[in-house]
Amino acid sequence: MGLDVVEAVLKFRVDAYNILRHLYLFGPRRHIIDELLHLFDRIDIANASPDLVTSFKLLEPLKGLESARYEETIERLQYEFSRLFIGPGSPPVPLYESRYRSPDSLLMQETAIAIRLNYLSSGLVSGGASHIPEDHLAVELEYVYYLAGETLKDFQKNDTQTMKDNLEEQRNFLQGRLDWIAEIAERVVANSEDSIITGIVTFTRGIIEEDVEWLRTYIESASASQPAAAMVTRSSSDTGAQQDGEIH
């Protein structure tokens, strides 16, 4: 085990959050679902958390579907996704954090404003083609995706201090903000009998929870082993630490 392991995890995180932000922004389109299924190939299911195991079991049947049936399922998923998360009307599982935290159940309330400060702290503002409020799940996931990418770059540049700051911001954000994913997952279970959608949100919750724990462990370990400055230092000798099989 060596630093390549760390790099692999960091790359995995980038890919996972990239898929999730696309998924919650655009809905379950085929190419996104394809990528999600591929991602499972990189997860150590045998040792993963119950949520990841459950989501694997729920989503795995998609892999065996023949093409026409797969397309049909995707079409059904798109409707179910709209019904649950988008509307029109009052969707049972709105994807805006303010909806769950504001006194009037409105959007764009203090929660959304507070998140702007998170984004600004990393030099980001809302500025996409649309103006989806900043507390939409997809935007929050995109923020983590961005930070995950920056962390990977920091790692590759040996910029340990910035990497430390980024990792801590991610841990805090995932713990203090994105914890509402638990509410989302519970609502989906209560409001949908669709195993695929249930699998998707369970996977999202599972990834976030695993990631929080990984971040906690990693930051603590790094701090313990590198109390002075660098959390991670790469050297040529570390590249040989890569090993086949799973990491335990």
Partner: peptide
């Protein structure tokens, strides 16, 4: 130079 101990919490399967 040490490496953070992360083996306890890694859910990623890492083949070569």
């Amino acid at each position: 130079m040490g490496t953070p101990e992360i083996s306890r919490r890694t859910f990623v399967k890492l083949s070569a």
